[in-house]
């Protein structure tokens, strides 16, 4: 049974890109384009990890991360993928220290980096 990855991004083209990187690596991908959609899918599915955009039309990416932690009672494996923040952005650093997110990948990224992160957290 292939592992399932949740991709959360309001931009359908971004979801298309990420699906096309992740699927050939032998994973299944579930896509959510709003915060509400993401929370619902997270609550009703089993995901090895989540790639999460920082800004969604209805919620902040970090709010979804908080919801996920609240729901599971632990820190789920979430990697933030964003064009809004940068790696040493205090918001990102704080979220990593608090354990809300495991890692951060700035847009645009190299497909190779995304695969490395995917492999690292799904081993």
């Amino acid at each position: 049974m292939a592992q399932v990855i949740l991709v959360v991004d309001d931009e359908p083209d971004m979801c298309w890109i990420m699906s096309n990187i992740i699927q050939p690596q032998g994973f299944n991908v579930v896509v959510a384009t709003t915060g509400e959609d993401a929370c619902f899918k997270f609550a009703h599915g089993e995901f090895s990890m989540m790639f999460l955009d920082a800004k969604l039309p209805d919620m902040e990416g970090l709010e979804i991360a908080k919801y996920a932690r609240h729901l599971t009672g632990r820190s789920p494996c979430i990697v933030m993928v964003s064009g809004y923040h940068y790696l040493d952005d205090p918001v990102v650093q704080k979220a990593m220290i608090e354990g809300l997110i495991r890692d951060f990948l700035p847009k645009p990224f190299s497909n190779e980096d995304l695969i490395k992160i995917l492999r690292f957290y799904t081993q």
């Binding site: 971004m14 298309w16 890109i17 800004k55 064009g83 645009p108």
Partner: peptide, 14 residues
């Protein structure tokens, strides 16, 4: 920044 980096990311990965 956010709005331009999204299409850039799509172009780059594609």
């Amino acid at each position: 920044a956010h709005e331009i980096r999204n299409p850039l990311a799509v172009c780059s990965s594609a």
